[in-house]
């Protein structure tokens, strides 16, 4: 019997059952793929926090708009910074009045009492104490900068909570991977047991049992790789569509175009490899159930 034929022997002998199993596996891989892409793009709560939280560099009253823009450009060039925007005193006053209506009288004495400032937002993956300190160290010596507001002690606590939540997400994802593997293993075990008589039939007719086991594992790995590819693609499409429809989700996961960014190619390949190995490994482990009684 040809090796290729043995790879898909289960499809020949139990096609309907395997089709149902494969549909279930697709859903499992889809859930895992969605979480995987979402976690890759969001970095857990990193992107959400990086949208909510900023380092603010309050400039001296005397700093002109050109100077403010220059400082913003310098800040934007720092490795951990995603975006740095200069807000002139007039924009600062409008934001202030929008936040605290009824205080227009403060300006009646003459002139705008507020200075301009630079709002600095960190990259989601660089929202760490070390990177924030690096930004502060770069801006503090500048004579145009009056004050740097970065949250002080609250920031340290916030970052600790963020790290904890991120670890929690990773543990949850790992748990789901283990649960997925357990499901695949149980499916393989049940199928191997139900087809044991058929494998014994093949063994009695000269097909080595090891060859059956490894060929089945190869077939399961190939199907697993294909399933991982299709489900990851479906997950990416679903996420991209969701982000388009629910803009606030973009603040948590990231913009839709990032879902298909080339930077995700290597993690996607890793996902395919994991799907292949999980499927092949479950098949090999489940094969033990096909062992003939007394052997």
């Amino acid at each position: 019997m040809s090796g290729l034929s043995l790879c898909f022997i289960d499809w020949k002998l139990a096609g309907k059952e395997l089709f149902r199993e494969t549909a279930g596996r697709f859903l499992l891989f889809f859930v895992l793929g969605t979480l995987f892409v979402a976690m890759l793009l969001s970095g857990g709560v990193n992107r959400f926090l990086s949208e909510q939280w900023a380092v603010t560099a309050i400039l001296q009253m005397s700093v002109p708009a050109e100077g403010g823009r220059g400082i913003a450009a310098k800040a934007a060039g720092l490795p951990g910074v995603r975006r740095a925007v200069y807000k002139d005193p007039e924009a600062a006053w409008k934001e202030f009045i929008a936040a605290y209506p009824g205080l227009e009288s403060l300006r009646s004495a003459g002139g705008n009492p507020l200075p301009g400032y630079v709002e600095i937002r960190m990259r989601p993956g660089r929202l760490t104490e070390k990177d924030i300190k690096a930004v502060e160290a770069a801006l503090r010596p500048l004579p145009q900068v009056d004050k740097l507001l970065s949250g002080g002690e609250a920031l340290t606590r916030l970052l600790r909570v963020k790290d904890g939540i991120n670890v929690g997400f990773r543990v949850l994802f790992g748990f789901l991977c283990v649960a997925c593997f357990a499901t695949l293993f149980l499916q393989e075990k049940a199928r191997a047991a139900s087809l044991a008589a058929d494998f014994a039939f093949l063994g009695d007719r000269g097909t080595p049992r090891n060859r059956i086991a490894f060929s089945r594992a190869l077939g399961a790995g190939l199907i697993g790789c294909l399933l991982a590819l299709v489900s990851l693609g479906a997950a990416a499409l679903a996420l991209s569509s969701l982000v388009d429809r629910l803009p606030y989700l973009g603040g948590v996961i990231g913009p839709a175009e990032e879902v298909f960014a080339p930077g995700l190619l290597v993690p996607a390949l890793l996902f395919l490899l994991s799907g292949t190995l999980l499927s092949a490994g479950a098949s090999l482990m489940g094969w033990r159930a096909a062992r003939p009684a007394g052997k």
């Binding site: 019997m1 043995l6 022997i9 002998l13 058929d198 039939f201 093949l202 007719r205 097909t207």
Partner: peptide, 12 residues
């Protein structure tokens, strides 16, 4: 038919 399919699987 399934039995023949199995027999075919055992054949070269």
């Amino acid at each position: 038919d399934d039995l023949f399919r199995l027999a075919a699987a055992a054949s070269f």
